[in-house]
């Protein structure tokens, strides 16, 4: 079963890449872009048919490896 995970920086954590992307977009003429935060996307293929179980194991993996909870939040889609 496929589980999708998004990891993003917590509010307040500096994201210099996001900032640079925003400035570039603004420079390209997209002057209405007021903020960019860059994150990560994971497509996990888990050998499990029960969706709840697969999501539970994905959550455990997020806490242990995929996200650093000091600076990042994760969302299981």
């Amino acid at each position: 079963m496929k589980i999708k995970v998004v990891v993003t920086l917590k509010n307040g954590v500096l994201d210099p890449q996001g900032k640079a992307i925003q400035q570039t977009l603004n420079g390209m003429g997209y002057s209405n872009v007021q903020g960019v935060r860059q994150g990560k996307f994971f497509d996990l293929e888990i050998a499990e048919n029960d969706e709840a179980k697969a999501k539970a194991v994905a959550e455990e993996m997020c806490k242990k490896l995929l996200a650093n909870l000091v600076i990042e939040d994760f969302k299981i889609l």
Partner: peptide
């Protein structure tokens, strides 16, 4: 404790 983020000036 803590974490090492990307340098401020990239």
């Amino acid at each position: 404790p803590g974490v090492l983020l990307q340098n401020k000036n990239i």
